[in-house]
Design a protein around this nucleic acid. Structure first.
Lengths: 349, 349
DNA sequence: TCCTCGGTTTGAAAGGTTTCAACTGGAAGG
DNA sequence: CCTTCCAGTTGAAACCTTTCAAACCGAGGA
């Protein structure tokens, strides 16, 4: 009577069918239904078929709350991201999801939008859901909220941020190395006066990339004063344009022949200004960006940029939090990924 | 003895404290603890204080699974998005989250990545979680999976897609109107030969925007053959460049003086090709894009584009699914938002 | 003194799943 | 014919919260 099953579904719409309903319909005990779901090999084929038919007829859907309640833990990881509209973090999340999926878990995404209050709220909710592990790019990496979580027994991994305290797993990308790569590339290309454009200095990433740049500059035996530092208010396109104006104001004999920008938005803004000002890129001004966002390669002059392994970052973080969740005497690790320079036309000889 | 509370927390780390533990610690019954949580006004101040202290000491965190099990429904909405790395959908999700938040619910995001299998899987999981409502930008809007969901009693709203069947709530943006706006703008600017660039035609959005373009073109009394249609394989930057090559191959007397691209990526590719080919934008070629993505305004020549009210789209969808969840005799609605043309330098006279 | 009343507090039941020890019936072995 | 064994099946208990009718208690009124 397959034709009745859609009707049955609609008729029972008042309450969703439970294992008990299925058991009654199939004429077996409730334990058997559970066995069909969880250890099908222990059930005789005939019974199994009958139960499965009953489940189909009744439109049975497992109640995850009840499972979790019984199991004491959910089948989820949570990621509190800093900004869900930033492609960097969505790529990171995608990497996490891949790892979660292979472990049979799902990933719940929350968006703090950079606000501590929202972050706190989401952490609270995730804990109430008894997630197996928490991934977070915190608004303030040193906040003691994280300690409270960990002390309560929830595995926590900090993503794309570092923290002095080695009692947390952290996963980040080596920004100092990224800065080195950019400058080494420019020095290789023969540049001897270079600008570093980035800010505000309160951002760890901005500082670290500059530090790497300085180290490479010195290693090349070049004088400090020829690495010009231009500080910006924010890492946005408009500030890149403004930096271009400042560069343009420098006498051409002293003007840097290349710029290393702390992110691609600045670099795109700078590129835009250069083009409208009639400068040829890279001939008059070479440009290196950072992040290798989607539009770096699609810019008017395709942009050389430092790429971070975003998906791997996410994958590693998820694997780490899983390790912490399963292995009781897990050692906290500080994983540092290696960025990579992608050379394109904006620095071509 | 506040100093012992952190110790207590760590000591009890074996199992998270439950209401029962709190009740014992505070010397009250379990029902009273629940009252403190849910109807604090019915509890005498002294008792309440005692219970709250006990909760703090034990690091009590409500078990959401148990709550849900009891309540029969979760406090979540689910959104199965088509592509979490596409800014359009993250903005839509943000709008949804706003609406969910004001209703005291959280939004669970899932990413189908355009694959039916993943979509199906996520829908299954969300149902198991007994979400109050489902929002979805389906891989195939006509798929009968959605019917199955609805018949099982879960409110469903289709987002950014339309469906002939009026038994679903849908929320979308009027692409026909968007096409009209773009062409009317170009005709206003004096263009009498225009190219429509977009594809593949299997995408509803590509078809609808072209339809709107044609309608506006005819309304202006212009001959059909002067609206040149260039079909592309995908909506990506590279295809925009290729379209540029095709335009360049047309004798200048017959060449369109403006192009309307089905999305901004195409428009950016076209712009790039135009610049490198030495065409002046907008003087030799005016360009209109679609979507108004972040980089439209930051392009070498800032791009005129048709903007969709993304956040409002998400907010409306979430409100609709909530209405359907609470109001038993809810009428399905097809909401159509109005796009808006943002004029920038790429079409300036 | 007894009763009533209001504000508090209590205890049990319910909600759906999983687990596990216990049971069943039939087949194989003695 | 009795025992042993085993695959298959069963039923109760546990997970934690919320709800609700019932119990409690002290005070004020009769």
């Amino acid at each position: 009577m397959t034709s009745t099953s859609p009707l049955a579904r609609r008729a029972s719409a008042g309450r969703t069918a439970s294992v008990k309903d299925v058991a009654v319909a199939a004429g077996v005990s409730l334990g058997t239904v559970s066995n069909v779901l969880n250890r099908p090999d222990r059930v005789s084929p005939a019974t199994r078929a009958r139960v499965e038919q009953a489940m189909k007829d009744l439109g049975f859907v497992r109640n995850e709350s009840a499972r979790q309640l019984r199991a004491g833990t959910s089948r989820m990881l949570g990621y509190v991201m800093l900004d869900a509209t930033n492609p960097f973090f969505t790529d990171v999340a995608q990497g996490m999801e891949t790892a979660a999926e292979t472990a049979g878990l799902s990933l719940v995404l929350c968006n703090s939008r950079g606000r501590e209050g929202r972050e706190q709220h989401h952490l609270e909710l995730l804990q109430q859901q008894r997630v197996q592990g928490l991934l977070i790019t915190p608004v303030s990496p040193e906040s003691d909220v994280l300690e409270a979580l960990r002390d309560r027994g929830t595995p926590v991994v900090i993503v794309d941020r570092t923290r002095d305290d080695p009692s947390f797993c952290t996963v980040a990308v080596d920004d100092v190395l990224g800065g080195r790569l950019a400058i080494e590339h420019l020095v290789d290309r023969g540049h001897r006066r270079v600008a570093y454009i980035g800010g505000p200095p309160s951002l760890g990433q901005v500082r670290d990339r500059l530090e790497g740049a300085r180290l490479a500059w010195r290693d090349a035996g070049l004088p400090d004063e020829d690495l010009l530092v231009i500080s910006t208010e924010e890492l946005v396109v408009a500030e890149g344009r403004r930096a271009g104006e400042r560069l343009a104001g420098i006498a051409s004999s002293k003007r840097p022949t290349a710029a290393f920008c702390a992110n691609d938005l600045l670099a795109l803004g700078l590129l835009q200004h250069a083009i409208t000002a009639g400068l040829r890129v890279p001939h008059d001004l070479a440009i290196v960006g950072y992040d290798d966002i989607e539009f770096a390669g699609a810019a008017a002059v395709p942009l050389t940029s430092v790429r971070q392994p975003r998906q791997e970052l996410g994958r590693a973080a998820a694997e780490l939090v899983l390790a912490e969740a399963t292995d009781p005497d897990h050692e906290h690790q500080q994983v540092l990924f290696t960025p990579e320079l992608v050379a394109r036309a904006s620095t071509r000889a």
